[in-house]
């Protein structure tokens, strides 16, 4: 629901790192999104086209790496993916479980073309 703000923040990070890398066009952005982070890929992609327009990151390909939720059992040490809304440990039925992974949300890396490629491609369209 708040993917507009999220996408603007993402653009700021991407452009800053692209500048530090020499200022070329950004061709791809690799994102890590945990299953528990309540971020919708399609919605980010939708806003991305708007916020990136006219920047060196316009048209960049968004590559999402989804991290499934993983729980770890405190009682027996078993790690498992929660199924539905039953979060008990499937090995020992304990409910003493903790979230181990799944709430990530960050830019992992970007792919930047060499800076020269910006100049001849400035079609002004």
């Amino acid at each position: 629901m708040h993917e507009m703000a999220v996408t603007q923040s993402m653009l700021e990070i991407v452009l800053r790192h692209a500048r530090q890398a020499g200022g070329g066009r950004v061709s791809a952005i690799h994102l890590v999104v945990g299953q528990l982070s309540s971020i919708v890929d399609d919605s980010v992609a939708f806003y991305w086209d708007f916020v990136a327009r006219g920047t060196p990151a316009e048209g960049a390909r968004l590559v999402f790496r989804r991290v499934p939720a993983r729980f770890g059992c405190q009682a027996c040490g078993h790690e498992f993916a929660p199924a539905g809304d039953s979060w008990e440990c499937p090995a020992c039925a304990s409910s003493q479980v903790r979230v181990k992974a799944g709430d990530e949300f960050f830019v992992e890396s970007i792919e930047v073309d060499s800076a020269e490629s910006l100049e001849p491609e400035s079609t002004g369209g």
Partner: peptide, 16 residues
Amino acid sequence: MPQRVPVVENILGAND
């Protein structure tokens, strides 16, 4: 040839 630039930055870092 695109260059892969590692970032690893939380997207809501500016708000933080």
